[in-house]
Design a protein around this nucleic acid. Sequence first.
DNA 1: GTCTATACATCGATAGAC
DNA 2: GTCTATCGATGTATAGAC
Lengths: 204, 204
Amino acid sequence: MEFNSDTEQKIMRAATEVFLEKGKDGARMQEIANRAGINKALLHYYFRSKDKLFEQVFRQEFKFILSNIVQVLSVTDDFKEFLRQFVRNYLQAIIPRRNLMRFIIWEIAKMQPNLVQYFFETFREHGYTENPVILRIKKAIDEGQIKPVDPVQFIMSFLGMCIFPVMAAPILQHILYHLDINDADFIEQRVEAILDLVWNGIKP
Amino acid sequence: MEFNSDTEQKIMRAATEVFLEKGKDGARMQEIANRAGINKALLHYYFRSKDKLFEQVFRQEFKFILSNIVQVLSVTDDFKEFLRQFVRNYLQAIIPRRNLMRFIIWEIAKMQPNLVQYFFETFREHGYTENPVILRIKKAIDEGQIKPVDPVQFIMSFLGMCIFPVMAAPILQHILYHLDINDADFIEQRVEAILDLVWNGIKP
DNA sequence: GTCTATACATCGATAGAC
DNA sequence: GTCTATCGATGTATAGAC
């Protein structure tokens, strides 16, 4: 068996689509086969079972989004500029994959805790042994770039501001008028809104 | 048929548990019956179908959390104090129901847009014809209690800070050390963290 | 590798006795 | 109202021809 055959890729693409949309329980092998332009039997030939196929999709998507985060960490030494880049980069990755965060948050709560190894696997692949986001914040505090804040509380706030609007977009668009996540200007507007709100609270 | 028979209540309780944990697709009528201490046939006797049972559970939970929001809106005129009460009250409602927000965000994205009528139904029941959260923010701006900010952007940020930590708790607890959402002090610590971060960004 | 046909399990729903 | 027994549909997985 070739490692990344054309068919295998078509299946992974289709499976990613369906799983992200319907979730593991709602996804149907038949629908994945249809979208991949093949038949059900071939799915099992390549991936043995629905469980194994799901596992691969989840791993792929999870590592994608986490690598994305880790890569921005060392881009600039200026902390405010780092936050700006972080939001922009993260939203650019997340918004086109409309269901990604919704899917991950939903599915991860049903998993065994040992699957959190994905985090540290990815950290290690990028040369970190500890949570690098916490390290980055502590460094900014030590250097006097921001005032002393609880890194954990700050991470929860900041990630929430980035992720929630994307995840809840299907509802928000109906109750917050004129909101369009996919608008060309949305990302830059969101970047500025977050930084305006946050910076005064953490600047030294 | 009595309106709220004892059995009916037991079913609703069990169904709520299972649906919030497993989602609509992952939930099994058998498991709901087991947890309610009855058999499958009785489920259909009371609720006709899984769809109808789910619909009732979703409606109940959705209205619960939305009523909770609306009630705090008119508690105080001081906007900063309002924010504080909002966070506290919301977290108190959400945290004990560990899967509530995760469930709603997940399921609502799969629904027909017309189910967003639940929002305005609840708004109307409390005497509002427009989105009352936006109104509240606009009022604070008009009165000079906060500086002019985009209400939509602010709502996304603020809700994100409240909801995300609870929804993502299963992951966060593993990568943000010493974090315990269920700790007695968590809510007050979170309240202060959010207000510290936010207030400097919006005070006049 | 890819297909058709089918086995096997499970789930939602109903029939019918009490 | 509540139960047992079972039907019918659907979903995952496999057997076997090509």
